[in-house]
Design a protein around this nucleic acid. Structure first.
Length: 522
RNA sequence: GGCGCCGUACCCAAGUGGCUAAGGGAGCGGAUUGCAAAUCCGCGAUGCGGCGGUUCGAAUCCGCCCGGCGCCUCCA
């Protein structure tokens, strides 16, 4: 039982062993903040948030870095279009990005370095590459010379002579088409920084090499990002860093699958677009791909509609490397699963009188191991222990959160079954027996909480389910419940059903139980 | 054209050589309920795109074919 991780570089699952025992450094490529975030930007953060939680649970001390690209051609273009500064564009969209991360429960990032705050390190890095002969200056631009790197292309498995490379007017100054810019000379009016090659700004890839080195070192454990970044971004990062340092940059390259928009899923491929020379953004729309110009807006609306927890659940129910069709219906479908858990948590509170969210639980794997036992004489706890093992086995297999989640569903069923069979929602007969049973329920539920926490799920009560007694809505609903109870007592079911149906129509669901009627918002 | 990925029940989806092919959603029976809702129990792919091959044994490996998608240009 040990962790294995799929490595894009070797295309195999490898046993996980960090460079320094007990410590793990992770660098995830974050967004270029020129427009508001879309769902695709959330995939990596949610997955790596779970990865970090799991590694921490397994006893590692993890440092997780997510960069913010706040200088770039598109940022400049957006600033010009809106007539504001590039810094202003970056600030707005960074705030939006952070807001969305928070909504999805991503709060384990240790550092979020910005490119513009590391210009000195970037320049130093470029100077080193020039000094070592891997880069050349051309008219204020600096390019990386891909022909000097014998291993260039090893991550994405392609050869330098097959590269078309970045186009534009700068292309004429390159020695080879595949060469890429480390430093771009500034045109009039563009944001710029002083450098040995004149005023300019960093190219796209160099910031990650420079910032990861400063924070995590020349070689670090895990580098992540979307599959679309494998080439050219990560290939180029890898080339820069390994040529500069003469050693591996990253031990494990992890790439997550991309999201597709539900409405347009399954249409035109990239190839034909290219041959037809179609406008890039139009082609993206047709392909149903979620990206910058498209997709924006969908995220905020979906968070508002379903809540961050359900979105997070949706992202973690499939394997991180698979592509996913994203849309209102798929999220709602996943959300139905979330409701099953939330209902159990309410049931748990009715039975034990304490909140699920207040339950103490094991924060470390060994701690949890000590608290569970598959050979327990208690049938419930034996089942829970087996399900916990299934969960951890799945996570050990390249963070298979989808398979792990199946164990969570099994657990909640076991727990519900136990409550029914032990009749824990009915008046207690044998007080001593009930105490034993409630204790077993509490221990089993604590294990569920322990595992859910690894995925960052169910850490706090959902806001939409708030129904405080002093809330006006709560008072009114309780009044209606009382009226309805009287009607039911008098067998006036026409009235009682009208109350229930009409409340359901405005989004309030009543459920009759032995101890009384409960309600929840839909 | 180059480099890759995928095709599992009505839908989503795990499983990548060997117990009865996870789990979720929807559906259908049953328990429960005044009726519901929720929950529990049960049912649901003799089959994993198609055809061959390797093997004692394949959804899992190999070949071909069909279909879908990604990257090769900015992209999480």
């Amino acid at each position: 039982m040990s962790l294995r991780v799929y490595n894009t570089l070797t295309k195999t699952k490898e046993p996980f062993a960090p460079l320094v025992p007990g410590k793990v450094g992770i660098y995830l490529c974050g967004p270029t903040v020129y427009k508001e975030a879309h769902i695709g930007h959330m995939v990596g953060p949610v997955i790596f948030d779970a990865v970090k939680r799991y590694l921490t649970y397994c006893g590692y001390h993890v440092t997780w870095v997510v960069n913010i690209t706040d200088v770039d051609d598109k940022l400049i273009a957006e600033a010009n279009r809106r007539g504001i500064s590039m810094a202003q564009v970056a600030a707005e969209n960074t705030e939006d990005y952070l807001k969305n991360l928070a909504a999805l429960g991503v709060d384990t990032i240790d550092q979020m370095p910005k490119a513009t705050k590391h210009i000195d390190e970037i320049i130093r890095f470029i100077e080193e590459l020039i000094a070592k002969g891997f880069a050349y200056v051309a008219d204020g631009d600096v390019f990386f010379d891909v022909t000097r790197d014998r291993e260039y292309g090893k991550l994405s498995n392609r050869t330098t002579d097959s590269q078309q490379g970045e186009g534009g007017e700068a292309a004429s100054r390159k020695r080879s088409p595949g060469d890429f810019a480390l430093w771009k000379t500034a045109k009039h009016g563009e944001p710029s920084w002083d450098s040995p090659w004149g005023k300019g700004r960093p190219g796209w890839h160099i910031e990650c090499s420079a910032m990861s080195r400063r924070i995590l070192g020349e070689t670090f454990d895990i580098h992540g990002g979307g599959l679309d970044l494998v080439f050219p971004h990560h290939e180029n990062e890898l080339a820069q860093s390994e040529c500069c340092h003469g050693k591996p940059m990253v031990k494990y390259w992890m790439h997550n699958g991309l999201m597709k928009a539900a409405a347009a899923a399954g249409k035109v491929g990239g190839r034909s677009d290219r041959e037809q020379g179609a406008d890039a953004s139009a082609a993206d729309d047709a392909a149903g791909k979620i990206s910058r110009s498209k997709g924006a807006g969908g995220l905020a609306a979906l968070i508002a509609k379903h809540g961050g927890e359900k979105l997070r659940f949706f992202l973690l129910r499939t394997h991180y490397r698979s592509t996913n069709v994203f849309g209102d219906e798929p999220v709602a479908e996943a959300g139905a699963g979330v409701d099953t858990f939330l209902r159990f948590f309410e049931r748990y509170e009715r039975v034990t009188g304490e909140s699920f969210y207040a339950l103490p639980y094991a924060k470390r794997r060994e701690e949890g191991d000590a608290q569970t036992n598959a050979n327990s004489t208690d049938a419930l706890l034996a089942d829970i222990a087996k399900q916990r093992t299934a969960f951890l086995t799945a996570m050990d297999d390249d963070f298979n959160s989808g398979a792990a989640m199946a164990a969570l569903f099994d657990m909640v069923r076991s727990l519900n079954r136990f409550v029914e069979q032990a009749k824990l929602e009915e008046p207690a007969g044998d007080a001593a027996l009930r105490k034993t049973q409630v204790d077993a329920l509490r221990r089993g539920t604590a294990t569920l909480r322990e595992l859910a926490a690894i995925l960052g799920l169910f850490r706090a009560p959902p806001k939409t389910n708030a129904k405080a007694d002093d809330d006006l809505v709560g008072k009114l609903v309780n009044l209606l419940i009382e009226v309805r109870a009287t009607a039911r007592k008098n067998k006036d079911f026409a009235t009682s059903d009208k109350v229930r149906n009409d409340l359901a129509a405005i989004g309030i669901l009543l459920e009759d139980r032995k101890e009384g009627t409960t309600w929840m918002r839909k």
